[in-house]
Design a protein around this nucleic acid. Structure first.
Lengths: 182, 182
DNA sequence: CGCGTTCGGCTAACGGTGTTAGCCGATGGT
DNA sequence: ACCATCGGCTAACACCGTTAGCCGAACGCG
């Protein structure tokens, strides 16, 4: 993947703004060009195709998410709970970007190496084992998309489901004497 | 939602075949018409728009899924395990239909009333409580889409994650004396 | 029988999409 | 002073969903 020039970064930034404020159907080459006071074909002087634009948005999204997750888990008394809060907050703040990041196979070849692992690391540390991390990730992602798509009734039960799932995947206390409060 | 005539049912059936065999990008009005030896505009004599076609595929998918889930759970020794097996089998057999069923808000207004609840019922029975059902559904759906999109490494750990999640959401044994084997 | 309606095809066309080809003025290096 | 590169531009293509309007065949019915 070619490195993006400064004009390309501008294009990606306005593309992300369009996506976040008006959703994926509005994310059109002509629309992006309009926003920049430019014609659509000129975009191709900076970006090879629309997919590369979407990939760049996804990469930015992962970078931002990774930062938030690391900051949330760092030194938290309840790392899993903190991670889940940060995860939900990210998805709620950038639902269209979140969907773009998750609703298709990852463009791994066009992503900085290590970024995927970096994003996954805080959860891994929060729950202990890799298989538990994958299960917990699946739960959190599942809840998130079901909520984004309004598949779950908006009653208190959904919040209970969050609690139930978090409790199910929280690592057991480190061994010794005092039990944890709940 | 208008009831679909017999020709419309044929159209939906070939649309589903195209979707299942070649994916959503191939699901084109012209492509469907071709398959039927017909021109694209003629489809609109039977179906109001493409979205209605997709909705019909989704409804068929839910009906088939509901049947499979009911059959799987019915009288099973481990209802949750049986449900998960049936769920994964359905998604693996019809990945594109599964995505269509889950990757967008449900077209509830154009679905037979009760179908959504019927599809959800087997899992609800299998785990006991509604909040546990939602959490378990999120986990199963999350694992499924992550696997469909090849987001999880294809090692044994993912299978462990399935086991871990299932164990986490299995209802406690009914009370009395003898412990279950594992 | 004849008539009118409805049905289910058709062609032509519109506006929108991503994308390519090719032109051209400005900028900047040698 | 020249030439190349950069970053715009217009025109156009193929494909998409969809609409308008035509037309032959089939059918109900007086």
């Amino acid at each position: 993947m070619r490195e993006l020039g400064p004009r390309a970064r501008e294009i990606v930034a306005t593309a992300r703004e369009v996506l976040e404020s008006e959703g994926p159907r509005a994310l059109t080459m002509r629309r992006i060009a309009d926003e920049l006071g430019i014609r659509a074909p000129s975009l191709y002087k900076h970006v090879p195709h629309k997919t590369a634009l979407e990939t760049a948005i996804v990469v930015d999204g992962f970078q931002e998410a990774a930062q938030r997750f690391e900051a949330a888990v760092d030194g938290a008394a309840d790392p899993l709970g903190a991670f889940v809060d940060a995860y939900r907050a990210f998805a709620a703040a950038h639902p269209h970007v979140y969907r773009l990041m998750t609703q298709r196979p990852l463009p791994r070849d066009d992503m900085p190496p290590g970024l995927e692992a970096r994003t996954a690391a805080p959860l891994l540390r929060a729950v202990g084992s890799p298989q538990r991390a994958r299960a917990a990730w699946a739960f959190v992602h599942g809840m998130t998309v079901l909520e984004l798509d309004a598949r779950l009734p908006d009653d208190g039960v959904t919040e209970d489901a969050w609690r139930e799932g978090i409790a199910a995947f929280r690592p057991p206390p480190p061994a010794a004497g005092r039990p944890e409060e709940h």
